[in-house]
């Protein structure tokens, strides 16, 4: 019975890993922008949920009505005014990558610094939906379950969008080759901006959900950016379901490792699994490349 409960909590954590990686997969996998300030959207969503809840008792889920559009617009502006001039200017892909890394690294510092000045350094957290739910005879926390459900729903929706709609087809064309996509009359700048902005918006939503069960502070963003990168790379760049699967795999390995081997080794097991996957499948688990 304990083993089943452990597996279940691993699955929930895995869902969260998938959730935080989906947005990055849009930004890096589709819009082809390595955004090191990606995790700051999570921080923004988390702080919004926290302050709305603490100051005005606004339901954290409702706070998404504010934070998600703001993150969307913010990321769109970043793409439009900071990143696309670099695309136009760049002579080749390497120069573009170097420039985007420098700029988004700078943004990371700016956002983190602003949050620190504005909201101070303390760890923040609040209690919301931390209620036990009986799931197939095992106890899980409702807030964690919700993040998991959101991850699955979002991953499936994105998968469907990319596979089965015109818009999705255009986005996939951009992901594969932006120049060729332009030739077949895809509005590359606009759709790339859309994918980038949507990625940020998803991360803000993830921030809201994650803030319900994990505490956070002003410097938490980069931690999640790096976690998301691992998941995206492991699942295969641009692969939404791969992203979810990779997250689940990592979550399961973590929980089982903690229970069967040694909780002290959970992160080591995670990274070892990641490295192993890359050595066996150098383009990620679910990529056909």
């Amino acid at each position: 019975m304990i083993l089943f409960e452990v597996v279940l909590s691993g699955v929930l954590v895995g869902g969260m890993y998938g959730l935080i990686a989906l947005g990055l997969n849009l930004q890096y996998g589709i819009a082809r922008m390595m955004n090191l300030a990606y995790g700051e959207a999570l921080m923004g969503g988390a702080y919004t949920a926290f302050w709305f809840f603490m100051l005005w008792r606004i339901d954290p889920l409702a706070s998404m009505l504010f934070s998600v559009p703001v993150a969307f617009c913010g990321n769109w502006l970043i793409y439009r005014y900071l990143l696309s001039p670099l695309i136009r200017r760049a002579a080749n892909q390497e120069i573009l990558e170097a420039d985007t890394i420098l700029v988004t690294f700078g943004l990371l510092f700016v956002f983190q610094g602003l949050a620190l000045v504005q909201w101070g350094g303390e760890y923040r957290g609040y209690t919301y939906l931390a209620v036990p739910i009986d799931l197939l005879g095992a106890t899980v926390a409702l807030n964690r379950l919700m993040a998991f459900v959101a991850a699955v729903v979002l991953a499936l929706a994105l998968y469907w969008l990319l596979r089965s709609t015109r818009l999705g087809g255009a986005l996939r064309a951009i992901a594969i080759d932006p120049v060729a996509a332009q030739l077949v009359a895809v509005d590359v700048p606009r759709l790339s901006a859309l994918a980038f902005a949507a990625g940020g918006a998803i991360m803000a939503a993830a921030g809201t959900l994650v803030s319900m069960f994990l505490s956070f502070n002003a410097s938490i963003g980069i931690v999640y950016t790096l976690k998301a990168l691992i998941v995206v790379i492991m699942g295969g760049v641009g692969r939404m379901l791969g992203c979810l699967m990779a997250g689940l795999l990592l979550g399961l390995a973590e929980a089982l490792g903690a229970y069967l081997v040694d909780p002290g080794l959970t992160l080591a097991i995670n990274f070892a699994l990641f490295l192993l996957v890359l050595l066996v499948r150098p383009q990620g688990l679910f990529s056909r490349g």
Partner: peptide, 20 residues
């Protein structure tokens, strides 16, 4: 008597083990 890594995101497997 066990450790867990800095930055762990779930401690419920450990709590369950202890409860047993």
């Amino acid at each position: 008597f066990k450790s867990y890594p800095l930055g762990a995101s779930d401690l419920s497997p450990q709590i369950r083990e202890m409860m047993a």
